[in-house]
Design a protein around this nucleic acid. Sequence first.
DNA 1: ACCCAGGCGACGA
DNA 2: TCGTCGCATGGG
Length: 264
Amino acid sequence: MITDCFIEIKNFNSALTLTGGQAFRWGRIEKNCYLGIVGSRIVALHREEGGIRLLGAADSDTDFWSDYFDSRTDYEKIVKCFSEDEILRKACEYAHGLRLLRQEPFETLISFIISQNNNIPRITGIIEKLCAGFGERITKKHFAFPTAEDLAEADLSAIGAGYRAGYINDAARKVKSGEINLDLIYDMQTEQARHELMKIKGVGEKVADCVLLFAYGKSTFPKDVHIKRAVHEFYPGGLPACIAGFEGIAQQYLFEYYRNVRRK
DNA sequence: ACCCAGGCGACGA
DNA sequence: TCGTCGCATGGG
């Protein structure tokens, strides 16, 4: 039964959470309304008092969305811990309401393979073409993210992914064959999980860390070009101890803060 | 024309 | 194990 569901979340920042570069399949329809495709689900997200409403969600999917938005994590508490560091306090103030999502591992893996040496608008465009070309059609205009089976032998020359096309094929083949079992990574220690993902061609430490953070909820600190600059400028002596256990969330706040405020 | 983008693999020392 | 370099593509 398609109706809608409400997820209770305090201070949800839609723009930063949905279009800030951790997910690539959300787009703004109008003020306070975003259209998102997650796997083969498609919903319109409306910001409401005390939470978010997902129009078009199956009423049996409340648990799925609650998990996707990681609704049980108390960001107020984490932000309060971060605030003992002056830079992080400013970053949290700027990016108030930014949250980490729990995305599907294969989709996250492919998305961040595409992200390497690339920029967010282009990543989004390439993923759009990937889905339109190889994903299952779910409405007249919208497509699910392709499966490993869809991509293993796909000719990706038309999606504009450049040299990353072969990496996508390699990842899809390894997942399809079972050489890499993405389900097993949930229960691995971070170090072993990273090593496992790095068996895929085109997956280095940064891409692996993004997958571990954005799909598996493991607290990595992905070191992309922006965050390297931010750390070099803000924390030449090392990261503050208050981020312990929540490195990934700190990374995301610093990423947004540095990219949008500090560096302009 | 250049530089850059949520990097990585190949290669040489 | 550590630098360095080329890599496809498109926007500024």
